[in-house]
Amino acid sequence: MPDEAVLPPPDFAERGHWFLTGAGKAISIPGLILFTAHIGFAGLAREAGMTMGQAVFMVLAIWALPGMVVLLGAVMSGAGLVAAAFAVALSSVRLTPMVVALVPELRGPRTNRLTLYLLAHFIAVTSWVIALQTVRDVPRDLRTSYYFGLGSSLVLVNMVVVWLFYLVAEDLPPVVAAGLFLLTPMYFLTSLWGAAREQAGHMAMVFGLVLGPLLHVFVPGLDLLGAGLIGGGLAYGAHLYQDRRK
């Protein structure tokens, strides 16, 4: 393989091709399941008293379902700006390690830092999982174009999904409305398991699943952060222990 640094910079057509390849990945099983999770969000937003415009704006501005759901919960409980902001901030700390894990894969030798700061807004579970699974098949110089296509089309499609289903949410039968809730966790479960690169990822998942609800009961507000640090730390400890025995 030639040294990537001496290849000529990709031209516009090549970038366009990989942008569209990335955009096409939005129409996939993970993408479809994310749509259904946003159907659930549209119903919830309506219950919380948000207008359609506000619900659609939340998708664009936050682009992280757990944070969006937490903000709705805060609004429904009549929380003020500071309390709501604090809850969303806590639920979104998880974005930092996700971005840290993905950025070294997206970055090429010529990548502008500003590009990465713009792309970072699109990083949430779905595009993160799809990218970790597929980005190594994309030429390094074109990974930012690919991810831009993937992330922006996911945001756009889900804004449309929330807009459409906000209008019909009230007419859904109760069993459908209740069943929608399961789509998001099932989707997170299967996609996370599939995206784990090493056994530590699978262990971290099991620890997080148990610690999340457990800490939610004892230290609400710190449950996600605590479960991440303790669960991830334990999984990494087990990973080091296994490495040493090899």
């Binding site: 757990p66 639920s91 700390v93 998880r94 390690p97 996700m98 840290v100 894990a101 579970v125 966790p185 997170f188 479960l189 996370l192 784990a196 690169r197 530590a200 990822g201 262990m203 971290a204 998942m205 099991v206 620890f207 997080g208 699943l209 148990v210 610690l211 999340g212 609800p213 800490l215 449950d223 996600l224 952060l225 479960a227 991440g228 640090l229 303790i230 669960g231 991830g232 730390g233 999984a235 990494y236 990973h239």
Partner: peptide
């Protein structure tokens, strides 16, 4: 990656 995975798993739980 382990910390990020455990955090999202906690969201699932």
């Amino acid at each position: 990656r382990a910390v990020a995975t455990a955090l999202v798993a906690a969201v699932i739980g």
